[in-house]
Amino acid sequence: MRRWAVGLSIAGAVALALVGILTAVLAPNQRGDLAREVAESLRCPSCVGESVADSSAPVAAAMRAVIDEQLEEGRSAGEIRAWFAERYGTEVLLDPSPLAGGWLLWLVPAVIIAAAVILIVTRRHRGRRWIPLAVTAAALAGVIAAWAVTSAAEPSGSHSPTTAEGAAPAVGVLRDAVESDSGDPQLQLALARALDDAGLLAEAEQHYAAASRLRPLDTDIAYLHATVLVRDGRPVDAVPALERILAIEPEHTPALLLLGTILWEGGVQGGEELLERFMELEPEHPAATEVRELLTEGRT
């Protein structure tokens, strides 16, 4: 009975292991993408002991961009490494291949391992000469096969170019956060900007307004609030926000321009005055010519 149970459990476990390992072997490689693997095999030339993948140095960032670009052009990992070795010398390769000057790095470990195996096996089997040789050859062959397999397996990773993610997850996350803490102006503002990016202007406006209420003296928030109202087709509603900005900061030129234009177009008094003040402050501004045209047009 016990033997039977043991046998069954062994058979079950072995079957489970086989099925599992087989599925894993057949599954697509998930060990990072190819770009990262290539970057990991290159030394950051302006750092000490860091790979291109791990360094925050600007040169490393530029090298990562070049790797991405070349992979998209369809170059192989080996070609890209060679491209870098041509420009930065062999020392840029963290694992130089035997052909690229790294033969010593392959030879030394092999010699160390072979020497150890020979030493041990000859001590064990004094007299029979072929045994140590055979065992050494087998061990070396095993190790070299393992190296070859790991090196050859390397470029099998996939390359998925980093695509810009939409704002959709951001909106969800930020909504939840705002719901639990609606008194946080930073959260309100972040949600408003995420909604703004997603094109949900009406909802974005509410959160800009909320952020603005929480930080009444922040002219940047108030200005964002005003612009979203304008883009949402409600320029008149933007007037109070813009007036508040100018009360705090009378020389806030974007607000002068925007409020001046809104008032001018609405035919309200004071618009021209604001636009003239804007021109005084920013005569070089690209919008200045348009404003000038607008004003002369109005006069005629």
């Binding site: 060990r31 993610e165 704002a167 930073q186 503002l189 972040a190 900007r193």
Partner: peptide, 28 residues
């Protein structure tokens, strides 16, 4: 630790960085 996900991105406030199934949204 070899099976991870890494993403590097420049984001504005209100935007998200996504690595695998994890996201980080910039607030400020």
């Amino acid at each position: 630790s070899g099976i991870g996900a890494v993403t590097e991105r420049t984001v504005a406030v209100g935007q998200t960085v996504l690595a695998g199934d994890t996201s980080a949204t910039l607030v400020s």
